[in-house]
Amino acid sequence: MIPGTFDYHRPKSVSEAVALLADLGEDARPLAGGHSLIPMMKLRLAVPRALVDLAAIADLRGVRRAGTDIVIGATTTIAELIASAELAVALPIIRETALVIADPQVRARGTIGGNVANGDPGNDLPALMQCLGASYQIAGHAGTREIAARAFYQGAYFTALAPGEVLTGIRIAPPPAGHGWAYEKLKRKVGDYATAAAALVLTMRGGQVASAAIGLTNVGDTPLFAEDAARILTGSALDKATVDRAVAAAEAITSPASDGRGPAEYRTKMAGVMLRRALVRAAARATH
């Protein structure tokens, strides 16, 4: 399988990349790790006329503090997320999620920016970014802007990213110390997209849920932010009746495809099961 022809550009700075994308027009695409884009190009599902490789832009790579927030550069690889000591302490759910993405070789090349910006509902990090309340930093010809992960996804492969724009980084305010977290993913084998997965961060106080945020992966055209389910859990002691109601609320917002991973009804139920398992593990990890 050979991709279609394209012109290759390797700018050294974000401003150079943005200028190139503006000049090249709608048929140009940014290239990060290429582990979503290159397979799509081989299948000719994507036929860009030009690629703007972000790999030589050193500013886009790595994890850094910005005040109390953490900013992860767009071309930081999944393997680098796993290896980051900073993330392991402040945002351990990122490491847990990154470890169930694809396989070691893919994690060595695939990037967080590509994973979240491509708009593939099968990717794991978009729902996690919604759960964490992350913001995407975007550069375009007209300047820079930030958009919430919860407002970014419009449909399968459709996002708020306009032609000519590049996602440069992801800003996250880490949850407080003592928070509980879990990413639960059901998949058929290593390297598979989720049949269903749930990302959960919660805080507990006096045996009750003080706050909760839930994201669901691959059970709709976009990642899903399960706001109602989280609201039901807040203030509860995670008693069975409340958990049942929250799981039902989460299942209610899903609309998975029936495919090789199972019929839609099954995948909806599995989203509920993943949320239940995530609740047990996150509550056990939280300081009460």
Partner: peptide, 8 residues
């Protein structure tokens, strides 16, 4: 790093 050279 180990990479899949069909995807680079």
């Amino acid at each position: 790093q180990s990479v899949k050279s069909c995807t680079v």
